[in-house]
């Protein structure tokens, strides 16, 4: 068994990086489309943006950044062979992921009770589809992290074998990164 040595430029399975790259490409196109259509509808976008409750977004940003930190700690723990600690950090990250979903659902509920739909206007179209698309990614990320956590508890990883943990962690960081950009772009920038 070979560890992921320093010769390996990317942590985790190579496949996940292909996947992450494809994901970033799609989000990149979506963000560009948002920026592009905002240019010709700045007034509408600003007015609609002002109706968003930024505290939801802020809480969720902090939640995801913290969970990313937990995942990083989990990776460090397993590199030192402390699989119990790794499992605990992953569990914490999963709990924060669930918190994110709960807050986001609360916000969606608020939006829908205000009568907002995908067809309300162009801003809400982007807001709803981008946040929902990201929401689905958090769900997928949690499935991956949950699988990794399960394998950790089952003793599949140790100081020499931890590609799986790194793979899950890489994906989770991507989900976090996309959210930070999304938060800045859709909730804050105007």
């Amino acid at each position: 068994m070979k560890t992921a040595s320093s010769a390996q430029p990317l942590p985790g399975d190579f496949a996940i990086w292909v996947f992450i790259f494809a994901e970033l490409l799609v989000f990149g196109v979506l963000f560009s489309a948002y920026a592009l259509s905002r240019m010709s509808n700045a007034g509408l976008f600003d007015a609609s943006q002002a109706t968003l409750n930024r505290s939801y977004g802020l809480v969720n940003t902090l939640t995801l950044v913290t969970s990313s930190y937990f995942v990083a700690r989990a990776t460090r723990a397993i590199r030192h062979g402390r699989s119990a600690a790794c499992g605990r950090w992953l569990g914490g990250a999963l709990a924060l992921g669930a918190l994110f979903l709960a807050v986001k659902l609360l916000e969606f509920h608020d939006d829908f009770s205000r009568g907002i739909t995908l067809s309300t206007n162009l801003f809400y179209m982007f807001y709803l589809s981008l946040t929902f698309f990201h929401f689905m990614h958090v769900v997928l990320g949690m499935v991956i992290l949950g699988f990794v956590a399960y394998r950790t508890y089952a003793g599949a990883y140790d100081a020499n074998r931890y590609t799986g943990v790194e793979t899950g962690a890489s994906y989770w960081h991507m989900v976090d990164l996309v959210w930070i950009i999304l938060f800045a772009l859709i909730y804050v920038l105007h």
Partner: peptide, 15 residues
């Protein structure tokens, strides 16, 4: 169909 398909359809079908 609703207008949002213009954006979503363009982005994904371009790929």
């Amino acid at each position: 169909a609703p207008a949002y398909w213009i954006w979503l359809g363009s982005i994904f079908s371009a790929l």
